[in-house]
């Protein structure tokens, strides 16, 4: 099966501003997830060192820095590609995130995240994350609640 994950969202901002906030304010909008911690320690603050030779790093409370990945494509305001590694990955294990910013409608942007490369992470490693079905079902439930809430708000706007 494909190990590609694609998630898209439409925002009320031009691509240039969406790109800027995505990069410069990632420390403010990123939501750490215990299933995808970069290191075994408490999550730190994410920060992009911008530019074609830049990188995405996590800085922990004590000041230690973990490099999540180098920037592999830098094409503001339309495209950004960066590596995405957890501390437990071996050098051969590597995933990649592509973020695209496409103008749609009047002053709006579709932001699409495509996260690939999880097939480079052996099944045994993935299995060690442990995804008991109760956790999965809880997460799916939360996800649907978010979707339905957004749908409800949208529908209310049209009334």
């Amino acid at each position: 099966m494909s190990s590609r994950v694609v998630v898209a969202i439409r925002v009320k901002a031009a691509p240039a501003r969406a790109f800027e906030v995505f990069v410069s304010e990632i420390g403010l909008w990123w939501r750490p997830n215990p299933l995808f911690s970069f290191t075994p320690r408490a999550p730190g603050v994410l920060h992009f060192e911008p530019g074609p030779d830049g990188r995405l790093i996590e800085t922990r409370a004590g000041g230690k820095v973990f490099e999540i990945g180098k920037i592999r494509a830098w094409a503001p305001p339309h495209r950004l590609v960066f590596g995405f590694r957890q501390a437990t990955f071996t050098p051969e294990q590597d995933t990649e995130v592509e973020a695209t910013f496409e103008a749609v409608g009047e002053g709006e942007t579709r932001v699409t995240i495509t996260h690939t490369g999880w097939d480079s992470v052996p099944q045994a490693h993935v299995a060690r994350h442990g995804f008991p079905s109760t956790v999965l079902l809880t997460r799916l439930g939360e996800w649907w609640r978010t979707l339905l809430s957004a749908y409800k708000d949208k529908e209310a706007e049209q009334e």
Binding site: V21, W30, I113, L136
Partner: peptide
Amino acid sequence: MSPMAQMLIALAYAWRRSLEAFKARLEQPS
């Protein structure tokens, strides 16, 4: 469902949650 499939669903959920926060930040009144 395989562990990989479960992980990818959880990963999609994690990205969705962060992107919703990104959208909220981007669209907040200045």
